[in-house]
Amino acid sequence: MKRVLPILTVVVAIFALWYAAAVWLNAAWAYDKAERAERTLSISELVTDTWSQDKPKLPAPHQVAAEIWKTTGEMALNGRAFSKRSLIYHSWITFSSTALGFLLGTALGVALAIGIVYNRTMDMSVMPWVIASQTIPILAIAPMIIVVLNAVGISGLLPKAMISMYLSFFPVVVGMVKGLRSPSAMQLDQMRTWNASPSQTFWRLRLPSSMPYFFTSLKIAMAASLVGAIVGELPTGAVAGLGARLLAGSYYGQTIQIWSALLMAATLAALLVGLIGVLQRLTLRRMGMA
């Protein structure tokens, strides 16, 4: 309770601010409409109007919630959960490229980290570039990657997943290099006194002791690969996916649609990161580390 109360207070404050901001931002349009109808607005009329406009500057939370329910729960009840108008369908598209990119990125990251830890030449030549690669705003070339891969004949899931992969391999490399090097000199010496081969040292000492670092970087990698998938959907001409919903919403000024796609993306991120958190707790408890 001691931990929940402050968080609840902050969340309630955010909602209160949101409703107030909705009144403030949408008031201009409400007054404009009232003037054309030649009537004056009382305060309560103003508030109800600003919270129920069709294309508000800032939709009120309940409008967004209603839109999300209309495009997920209600459609699922009607048995049209995977129709093209349903947010479940778009979330699924985004999720599948996020997941593929995340898996590829994790595999690449772990492979690079093992190379860096075991090979001195790779450590000195690749590591600085891994770090430099992240100061490059790679998202900027997302549209180009999509277009170029389309021209080569690769389309669909893979181009988006490549962008997710590029964004997600970095935290894994950095975390795994740190983790694989975390055994102390004393522990490594102990392995040597037992005449352990390099592969035995790897499987029984280095890999297990890297696990806490591994899961922490997986959480960051998951968040990053979701961002990659969403941005990767922007230039595909707004076909499918949460990013495409964002773009279509901004073309047609459908603010409620933008906000509902945004909240779905946030929910997806929370679910995926939470899932890794659960896996982390289970694994580490099983290993006696938590």
């Binding site: 931990r3 402050p6 968080i7 609840l8 207070t9 902050v10 969340v11 955010i14 500057k57 998202l139 959480k219 968040a223 979701l226 961002v227 969403i230 941005v231 949460l242 990013g243 964002l246 773009l247 919403g249 901004s250 000024g253 603010t255 933008i258 906000w259 796609a261 945004l262 993306a265 946030a266 991120a269 929370a270 990161v273």
Partner: peptide, 27 residues
């Protein structure tokens, strides 16, 4: 009190795809 409330919320928001706010802010 505020720290205990804001930190988890801040951590949560930092993991969200904030870039999606871009179309709204451009509007």
């Amino acid at each position: 009190f505020l720290q205990r409330g804001l930190l988890p919320v801040g951590n949560f928001v930092a993991a969200l795809p904030i870039i999606g706010m871009a179309p709204i802010l451009v509007m």
